[in-house]
Design a protein around this nucleic acid. Structure first.
Length: 424
RNA sequence: GGACGGGUGGCCGAGUGGUUGAAGGCACCGGUCUCGAAAACCGGCAUACCGGCAACGGUAUCGUGAGUUCGAAUCUCACCCCGUCCGCCA
């Protein structure tokens, strides 16, 4: 959600962001309609409020006359007629406002100045870490996992459907170990507060983080309850402080939460369908930070470094990619993707996406802070990043650490949790 | 799932149809007093939108939404949430 005043006074900023997102052509008509709607909206508000003022004045006069013992019958009749007119004007106002806000809700966030224009091809690798294992003589992870008996895709498909997972034995224990490893790293070393949150959320939460209304068809819903399975812990964690005012002195605040994540992946049929690359339910430890506006850019760098630490401790080669405008998510103002090298499939796999949302989510969710220096409450900046998503990480681990004899070496930091230094 | 009670400003809390955006208190800000502080006292203190260069004016907001009424925090209905008791249950 944008500041409506900014929208009115600096439409050039929005146009620039849309251009860098490569969405200007697609959204220019929306923008023009919004600008036209804004005018009729204001006219409707003015008309309705003027009529309401008349109506209020009549009510006051009725009261005065009644107290004075005078007859108010004619006035009451006048008020009645005014009320009918008012109803009409109010309806027009409501229609104009609804049309305008629903249109504005479709506009993506502005972009920070250093986000490159263009689509995926304009993404920039900012830095790399580790030595990628050559993509030769390494089997893809689904073959390794099947051979080790730690993943049972056919039975997962039987009990739930394609795109769902059953880990078994050390595979299941690997998931559990990753959960502990990541949460310990972020809470003990990086200072995050650990949260355990609902796996379902309501509409207001989905709107707050901007999954709704634009991406409703990506979500699994519990129809009878009007609740939705979380696509990421970002939703419950960011909405934790919805409609609240935080003390400025308590910022920045940092939360780490494990949750299962559910995504319909509508429209992604046929892409990365094998193995662990794209599934409907996966596990993730999510990092969320609340910041004042001035510190948010630095907070994004810090958050990204915390997600990177996971990969470093696991000894996995990765690269940090600054997404171009066209690849940057709807609500994000700037995003770094962390891509881990998976030699078996010969691809860099996105295991984390670290973003700053400026005040875009905070407006929608009405999350404010009272500046420590005093002054009016202002919207916080929200940030989040995966730290990290499990399935693709597991794929990279299996492919990176497979030995010639078919077994898989376990990185040091997972040995205690797994109770072994070798799978197979 | 059933019965009853309740949701008012940053917080607590009055208010059951008419100058109530809403008493009072706390917190916060400014001042007087003081060497300084506390206390006491005085004053200030919601947000959003619309119009206006501005002073200022208007409108909305008492859980949410609809309704009754000339007029709703106050009456009606639905829903949400919290509490207490009962039932059920891992």
């Amino acid at each position: 959600m944008h500041d409506l005043r900014l929208l009115r006074e600096r439409p050039d900023l929005l146009r620039d962001a849309l251009r860098r997102r490569g969405a200007l052509d697609a959204l220019a008509p929306t923008l023009e309609r919004a600008e036209a709607l804004e005018r009729s909206r204001r006219e409707a508000i003015r008309a309705a409020e003027a009529k309401r003022a008349d109506s209020n004045a009549i009510s006051q006069e009725v009261r005065r006359r009644k107290q004075a013992g005078d007859d108010a019958g004619a006035l009451i009749e006048q008020g009645r007629r005014l009320g009918a007119e008012l109803e009409q004007l109010d309806r027009e106002r409501a229609d104009a406002e609804a049309a305008y806000t629903s249109l504005v809700a479709e506009l993506p966030n502005l972009l920070l100045a250093d986000v490159p224009a263009g689509g995926e091809e304009a993404n920039r690798v900012i830095r790399s870490w580790g030595t990628p294992r050559p993509a030769t003589a390494v089997r893809p992870h689904w073959e390794i996992a099947e051979a080790l008996g730690i993943l049972d895709l056919p039975r997962a498909a039987k009990v739930a459907g394609s795109g769902f997972l059953v880990f078994r034995g050390l595979g299941a224990r690997l998931v559990r170990s990753l959960m502990s490893f990541m949460l310990d790293l972020h809470t003990i070393t990086h200072g995050y507060e650990e949260l355990w949150v609902p796996a379902v959320v309501n509409r207001a939460s989905m709107f707050g983080t901007a999954q709704f209304p634009k991406f409703e068809d990506e979500q699994y819903g519990l129809v009878a309850e009007d609740l939705f399975l979380v696509p990421t812990a970002e939703v419950p964690v960011t909405n934790l402080y919805r409609d609240e005012i935080l003390e400025g002195a308590t910022l920045p605040r940092a939360f780490a939460a494990y949750s299962p994540c559910f995504r319909r992946e509508a429209g992604a049929h046929g892409k990365d369908t094998r193995g662990l690359l794209r599934v409907h339910q996966f596990d993730k430890v999510e990092l969320v930070r609340y910041s004042t506006p001035e510190h948010a850019p630095a907070q994004l760098e810090l958050l990204t470094s915390h997600a990177e630490a996971v990969l470093q401790q696991l000894g996995l080669a990765y690269r940090v990619v600054l997404l171009a405008g066209g690849d940057t998510g709807f609500a994000s103002a700037k995003t770094y993707d962390l891509e881990v090298w998976a030699p078996g499939v010969g691809k860099w796999l996105e295991v984390s996406s670290c973003s700053t949302f400026t005040d875009f989510q905070a407006r929608r969710a009405n999350i404010r802070y009272r500046p420590a220096a005093g002054g009016k409450p202002a919207f916080v900046h929200t940030l989040n990043g995966s730290g990290t998503a499990f399935p693709r990480l597991i794929a990279a681990l299996l492919e990176q650490y497979q030995e010639a004899d078919g077994s898989v070496r376990v990185p040091d930091v997972l040995r205690a949790g797994l109770g072994t230094d070798r799978l197979g």
